[in-house]
Design a binder for these strands. Structure first.
Length: 588
DNA sequence: GCCGTTTTCGGCCCGACTGTTTTCAGTCG
């Protein structure tokens, strides 16, 4: 996709300009990059149909950047960018991922120590070459080493939300192939783990060769690692691998069970089979040499005396015991997991996404969001913008919030007159300040349909201070929901220090809802913490935290995480209708 | 470098935090 390639280049251009201390231009390039990333139309098409003039219509694209785009479309290169790369031959995209490293430090380290990539950086930090540099020091060097360790832990793994769109596309194409009888995702992708090593797809077919040929010729494949009679492995342009296996129908279920894992789950299921005098493998369930199951996963589990276990639970974290109890009619059995189609609305949507931040059409955007929500099938959608403490995100002050409240009222009336079923709720995502107070006055918070509060600053407080900070916030009767409660960013930032048991206790006592933030980078609460919260009887809500319209689809990842945390419909507040939801919010 | 108007150039994303250079640059959200 040319849009993505150009976005990557413009983002790097922004970094280069930043290194040179150029003011404002980096922002312009970043904005153009973001604009291209979120554009629904291929920029090549736009140019072919309308030339430079059409390019100038793209928000954030002016004369200079339009010329760059034209140059790239014609020659595959941008001279300005190539010159920079020659001058500073750096792996910016990997170096910038180290926490605390920015363009300036990257440039200094290149000039003083010739550091070009992560490997160079690690070598220099370990040899204590960084600390003595002007502007650096012991702590910085230590932080770099820590940042590198953190990156390594997740090396070679990709965010679920990064992989899923591409794989879904491949999946749909294969599914439509007439030679494909059955198809499923497998591996950690099917279990919906938050990060994925590589993507596995399983197909049942009588014509494996034809399926294989079709697969390796799909768009977006960068390299073919191998292609056999029933297995092929490819590297996608996005950097991750996809493995396809084609199987005969009679062992499709057992293969699916085997390749879905987890390894730990499979070890136990095989042991159970052995206890029953059976053998379970990817080829089926066997009694002696006779196959007694394998066509479907349900059959496989049934053959070893277990009910079907949802893929999201297969981690050997108690699901086998629960399944065994259920099989014996004892309690508690397996949870009846919240369904992907049971969500009735999304309460965490920002109406000021970057691409419209500077335009005046915010009200139109709220209406657009509502229309998207209707398409998804929601009953309600909640607008919850940042508040004034977050200056960078144009946080709203009291006056602006009240104004927004009136605007939303009007949009609701208009939608109602048009016989639309959607209802827009109005909230905000206020900031929990260091002392636990909220950055918006209570008399304004009271007027909103709901209030989300979250920590967006001072992440490095002590455990005791952070626990206290959240506790004070939850005790505010106007605070309904705590957003991204632990603050972690997958592969980038640890959770903040806090006493989570204490937080759960106070959430329970105050009736505060904890958010399951569905953003693929957050997934916060995570499965483990969701399970802890559920055990305490705490209500949760799955929100996307959308900053763009497209991000409403993140809901899928949030539900997946909830399911990994054994959550049932009754645990998740936004499975309620709008009326029920508002009633339950009032109870606090 | 882009945008929007003040139509020809000034404003753009800013406050907190961190570590270090002791008066502030770089990074983060």
């Amino acid at each position: 996709m040319v849009n993505q390639e150009l976005a990557k280049i413009f983002n790097e251009m922004a970094q280069f300009l930043e290194m040179d201390g150029v003011a404002f231009k980096p922002y312009a390039y970043q904005r153009a990059a973001l604009s291209l990333e979120t554009l629904n139309e291929d920029v090549g098409n736009i140019y072919r149909q309308g030339g430079i003039k059409a390019l100038l219509e793209i928000p954030g694209v002016g004369k200079a950047i339009a010329d760059h785009i034209e140059e790239y479309l014609k020659t595959g290169k941008i001279k300005h960018y190539e010159d920079y790369k020659k001058k500073l031959p750096l792996k910016i995209d990997e170096l910038i991922k180290v926490e605390g490293m920015g363009p300036k430090k990257i440039k200094t380290l290149y000039q003083k120590l010739g550091i070009k990539n992560l490997k160079d950086l690690e070598k220099a930090a370990k040899a204590h070459k960084i600390a003595p540099l002007f502007g650096f020091g012991e702590t910085t060097e230590k932080n770099i080493l820590q940042g590198l360790e953190f990156l390594k832990r997740d090396k070679g793994r990709f965010l679920l939300g990064y992989i899923m769109p591409t794989v879904t596309d491949i999946f749909e194409k294969l599914k439509n192939l007439k030679e494909v009888d059955q198809i499923s995702l497998a591996g950690s992708l099917r279990r919906k783990k938050e990060t994925i090593g590589d993507a596995d797809i399983l197909v049942a077919s009588k014509h494996p060769a034809k399926v294989m040929d079709f697969f390796v010729k799909l768009d977006g494949i960068e390299k073919i690692w191998g292609k056999g009679g029933t297995k092929a492995s490819v590297r996608m342009r996005e950097g991750f691998d996809v493995d396809l296996r084609v199987l005969p129908e009679k062992s499709y279920g057992s293969a699916l069970q085997y390749f879905t894992g987890s390894k730990e789950h499979n070890i136990i299921t095989r042991k159970i089979a052995i206890e029953k005098g059976l053998k379970l493998s990817e080829y089926g369930v066997f009694k002696g040499k006779k196959q007694i199951a394998g066509k479907t996963e349900e059959d496989v589990y049934k053959a070893i005396g277990l009910p079907f276990i949802e893929p999201e639970l297969r981690e050997n974290e108690g699901e086998i015991e629960a399944a065994l109890r259920q099989a014996q009619g004892k309690l508690p059995g397996l949870p009846k997991l919240v369904g992907y189609n049971e969500i009735k609305g999304d309460l965490h949507c920002h109406s000021k996404p970057d691409e419209v931040k500077h335009s005046k059409n915010l009200e139109n955007f709220i209406e657009e969001l509502a229309l998207s929500a209707i398409e998804i099938g929601y009953e309600y959608i909640g607008i919850s913008d940042h508040t004034k403490f977050l200056k960078i995100d144009d946080g709203l002050n009291e006056e602006q919030l009240l104004k927004q409240h009136e605007a939303i009222k009007k949009i609701n009336e208009k939608l109602k007159n048009e016989n639309s079923k959607i209802r827009i709720l109005h909230g905000c995502e206020a900031n929990i300040l260091n002392d636990g107070s909220i950055d918006i006055k209570d008399e304004v918070l009271e007027k909103l349909d709901y209030v989300i509060a979250g920590v967006h600053s001072s992440f490095k407080m002590s455990k005791q201070e952070m626990t206290q900070r959240l506790a004070v916030a939850m005790q505010n009767p106007n605070v309904d929901i705590i957003s991204h409660p632990t603050g972690r960013l997958i592969g980038r930032r640890e959770e903040y220090q806090m006493d989570f048991d204490k937080i759960l206790e106070i959430a329970k006592k105050t009736g505060t809802i904890l958010e399951i933030n569905a953003n693929p980078l957050r997934l916060d609460l995570n499965g483990f913490n969701i399970r802890r919260a559920k055990a305490q009887g705490i209500k949760m809500i799955i929100n996307t935290d959308s900053h763009q319209k497209d991000q409403l689809t993140f809901m899928e990842y949030g539900v997946a995480q909830a399911r990994r945390g054994w959550a049932e419909k009754g645990d998740i507040t936004n499975t309620l209708s709008a009326e029920e939801l508002l009633k339950s919010l009032k109870q606090k």
